[in-house]
Structure formats: structure tokens, C-alpha cells
Simulated assay, not measured.
Amino acid sequence: MYTCEDCSNYSFKSKCIKGNNSKIPLEARTKKFETSKRFNRQRKEDLERIITNEGILLRMNRSLQAEGSFAQVKHDMNFRRFMCCGQKNVLAESILLAMAYNANKLHNKIQYNRTGKHLFELKEAS
């Protein structure tokens, strides 16, 4: 938990401390925030996972593969715009689009006997 000791002379105090529902006047308030223990633990576990050799390899290859998916959806599947309106409908349509893309990708891997392999050969971390 972090608490500012004294921010009375801070010129941006009204922008820094948000929330008008407090019974304490703005002049008497100080900035407070905290992070959860669970969040910190998960963040540490994630960091340990991504700095391993396997994590580095997967991150390097992920950066090569991400853009191709959008290009294939736009060009090969001729997707230019969503057909429906509303956040829930767009989400449903994008999930269907992702499922169709993954099914097509799996079909091609099965056809060419490439299951269990990466799209590109994994590079070695330096």
C-alpha cells in the first residue's frame, strides 16, 4: 500500500486525487493506492515464465506470427467489416471469425501432415 505523506502544495492535486464521493474535503485528502498480493504473485510467476529459454523462444516467434493472422483474415477470408452492431454482436462475430480461422488452419495442418509443429522453426535465444 502506498500513501503520499504530504501533497498539499501539489498543483495537480485535483486531477491526481479523483472521486467526489468522499466526506473528507479535497484539501485534507492524500493519494492512496494498493496492489493485491495475488496480482503481485501472478506477475512474478509470469515474469519467471517469460524469461526462461522457452518463454524467450515463444515470444520471438509470436512477434513473427501475429500480424499474419490479421492479414489472412482480411485478404483470404475477405473480411472488411462487421455485419452487426452492438458490442455483444461484434464480440460474437469476432469469436466465430476466430473459430473459422483456427478450423481452417487446423484443416490445412492435417492435410499437409504438419500437426505438432510450429508455423516457423523456433529460433535459438541468444
Rank of each mutant, 00 (worst) to 15 (best):
M60P: 00
L57P: 00
K74H: 09
N53P: 12
H118F: 13
L64D: 11
A125F: 01
I95H: 13
N104E: 06
Q65D: 03
L122M: 09
M1C: 05
F70H: 07
K123A: 01
A125V: 04
F82P: 02
V90C: 11
N104V: 03
M99L: 10
E93D: 02
Q42F: 00
E5H: 09
E54L: 13
T115F: 00
A98N: 12
R59G: 04
K32I: 06
M83A: 15
A98K: 02
E124M: 04
F82K: 01
C84H: 15
G19P: 09
N104H: 14
D76E: 12
L96Y: 03
L106R: 12
F12V: 07
M77W: 11
I51V: 13
K13R: 12
F12Q: 15
I51S: 14
K44I: 02
F120R: 10
S126C: 08
Y2F: 10
G68Y: 10
F120M: 04
E54I: 03
H118S: 12
M77L: 13
R62N: 06
T115A: 03
G19C: 13
R114Y: 05
R81E: 04
N113R: 07
K105T: 15
K74G: 13
C4R: 08
Y101C: 05
S8W: 06
I110R: 05
N20I: 07
A92Q: 08
S63V: 01
R59D: 01
G68M: 04
Q72E: 11
T52G: 03
N21P: 00
V90Y: 06
Y10Q: 12
Q87H: 08
F39T: 07
E27H: 07
I95M: 09
V90I: 13
N9M: 05
N61A: 09
E124G: 14
Y101T: 14
N20G: 08
R62G: 01
N21S: 14
L47I: 02
N102A: 03
L119C: 10
T3D: 09
T30C: 05
N89K: 15
R43A: 12
D46H: 11
M1T: 09
R29N: 06
S22N: 13
E121R: 06
C84S: 15
K109T: 04
A92F: 09
S22V: 03
K117E: 12
S11Q: 08
K37S: 10
Y101P: 03
N9R: 12
A125K: 06
R41T: 15
E45L: 14
F82M: 05
L26D: 07
L47W: 03
N102C: 05
T30V: 15
S8N: 04
L106G: 04
E67D: 07
I17G: 11
F79K: 01
Q42Y: 04
A28H: 11
S8T: 09
Q65N: 10
H107I: 03
L122P: 05
A100M: 06
C85Q: 10
G68Q: 05
K109C: 08
Y112C: 13
E5I: 14
F39D: 05
L58P: 00
K32H: 15
K18D: 00
L26A: 12
N104Q: 14
I95A: 08
P25C: 08
A125Y: 00
N61H: 13
E5Y: 04
